[in-house]
């Protein structure tokens, strides 16, 4: 089995279409900002002004201003991107700046995360948290079939005990009567 440090080599599908879009991917950020502006402005417009309003400024004024700010920023950013401006991706020692995004790893991570969201209230933190840790470590390429789950359970049990020692409630699941 591969070393813990090595992520799975994911053959990215559709690489060629990816390449033509690559230079302009940042336009997606502009689209996101326009969308957000639309959501904020639509919500502001739907606020009724018949409410007892204290003061001259109603609840829609600031959202409207924020929406206008978003549109202005999105427009400036679009212009900037089209003229060749680029936001520098954040660098970190663990990041390979030349690698394409590894969507398979991201999907697996999101899967592990969502599993925990669904299971947490039912199965309790000790089980659900362990699955989260193991699943995330698996997604990131760790393949130690004994060590990984052991560490995962140690982490979830340890954090459960620490949190209960500090007076913070976590769902206990099947261990509810025992602890």
């Amino acid at each position: 089995m591969s070393d813990a440090g090595a992520p799975p080599a994911a053959p990215a599908p559709g690489r060629s279409s990816h390449r033509t879009l690559r230079g302009r991917a940042e336009l997606g950020v502009c689209a996101f900002l326009y969308l957000l502006a639309a959501v904020v402005l639509y919500d502001a417009a739907s606020l009724g002004s018949d409410f007892t309003q204290r003061g001259p400024v109603g609840p829609a004024a600031v959202p409207t201003a924020v929406g206008i700010l978003l549109i202005a920023v999105a427009t400036l950013l679009t212009v900037d991107v089209l003229r060749g401006g680029r936001g520098a991706p954040e660098d970190s020692e663990d990041v390979d700046p030349d690698a394409p995004s590894d969507w398979r790893t991201l999907a697996l991570l999101a899967g592990a995360f969502l599993t925990n969201v669904v299971l947490l209230d039912v199965a309790g933190w000790i089980i659900s948290g362990a699955l989260l840790f193991w699943g995330a470590a698996f997604a990131l390429g760790s393949r130690h079939w004994i060590r990984d789950p052991l560490i995962a359970f140690a982490m979830s049990t340890g954090s459960y005990l620490l949190f209960s020692a500090l007076g913070i409630w976590l769902p206990a699941g099947p261990f509810a009567s025992g602890v």
């Binding site: 992520p7 663990d94 991201l106 990131l140």
Partner: peptide, 12 residues
């Protein structure tokens, strides 16, 4: 998520 998307194979 960001690091996971392009994790370097050799650790720092």
């Amino acid at each position: 998520l960001w690091v996971a998307s392009r994790l370097r194979r050799t650790p720092a």
